[in-house]
Design a protein around this nucleic acid. Structure first.
Length: 281
DNA sequence: AATTCGCGCAACCGCAATGAA
DNA sequence: GTTCATTGCGGTTGCGCGAAT
């Protein structure tokens, strides 16, 4: 929800009472409250949220102040839609750690655990519902690996070719050359044949850029294919590369104008996926 | 034009972990 | 060692908005 939209909310929040009789506010934050919180933290720093709430003149719980600051007001919060790169990272890290939102968020600078959690619930679980499978099931993970991730990599390639950065285009070429996207015509053969390596996310070897390292993957023969989880350090290294800049640029020009979430599974893919289920793959 | 419905997201809640007194 | 306050985390709720009917 945008800041403006937040302020447009008609509900100005309910309230409970403090022991001293003053009102304890709940619900959406007002512009005035935001300003009070920002000014106070700018002067005194964050932490000790309960006393902060009182000293700042906010009739809010410390918890509420902390949440508002961390999820919305903090200066380094990145607003806007998640880039394909970030989405891919979320999918990867979730397959490794599950619902450890805060841990996942640590690897996406500027993104909050709440945002990632919301993304998972609204976008990813929506895909699972469409496929009529549990979002934690092996089948769904397989579908993510087979369809979703290659699409994200395609998107990354498209984005980087638009911006035509030498660095970013080389990265995406490196990745997508080896990443076989099942064609709508022949996905069953590829996916059902365990000896056919074209259905696998292949091992990426050689000298990789930071982005390439992040997404280097082993064969899908493992239940859960391995990815090198980026450390915060190489995320920062990545942030300094052209690829991340171009990602951001693309995001800013409404990359999500096309609803990525709802367009991942076209009719053919859904049909093939259900066929895979029928034959017990 | 009015109503319904689903989605996205900010905010809240409960619980566990941590640390100070 | 115990109690209490604070912090952090994951799950859930509720509301505005826009699309569909």
């Amino acid at each position: 929800m945008s800041c403006n939209r937040s302020r447009m909310l008609k509900n100005i929040g309910s309230s409970n009472s403090y022991e001293d009789g003053s009102e304890l506010r709940r619900g959406p934050w007002t512009l005035e409250e935001d300003n009070l919180l920002i000014e106070y933290i700018n002067c005194h720093g964050e932490g000790r949220w309960n006393s902060l709430a009182k000293c700042a003149g906010l009739n809010r719980t410390g918890k509420s102040c902390r949440l508002r600051w961390l999820n919305y007001l903090k200066p380094d919060i990145k607003r806007g839609n998640l880039t394909p790169h970030e989405q891919l990272l979320i999918l990867e890290l979730h397959s490794k750690w599950g619902n450890r939102w805060s841990k996942i968020a640590q690897h996406l600078p500027g993104r909050t655990d709440n945002e990632i959690k919301n993304y998972w619930r609204t976008r990813v679980q929506k895909q699972a519902r469409q496929l009529k499978v549990d979002s934690n099931s092996k089948k769904f993970l397989e579908a993510i690996r087979t369809y979703w991730m290659p699409r994200l990599l395609e998107k990354m390639e498209q984005n980087s070719s638009v911006t035509s950065s030498p660095c970013s285009s080389s990265i995406s070429t490196l990745e997508t050359q080896k990443f076989t996207v099942p064609s709508p015509e022949k996905p069953l053969e590829n996916n059902s044949d365990s000896n056919n390596s074209s259905a696998k996310i292949p091992e990426i070897s050689g000298d990789l850029t930071p982005a390439g390292k992040i997404f280097s993957a082993k064969s899908l023969e493992d239940d859960y294919y391995h990815v090198d989880i980026p450390t915060y350090d190489n995320m920062q290294e990545l942030e300094s590369q052209d690829i991340s800049i171009s990602d951001r640029q693309v995001a800013e020009v409404d990359w999500f104008g096309e609803d990525l979430g709802s367009t991942f599974w076209n009719t053919d893919e859904l049909w093939h996926f259900r066929k895979l289920e029928e034959i017990g793959v």
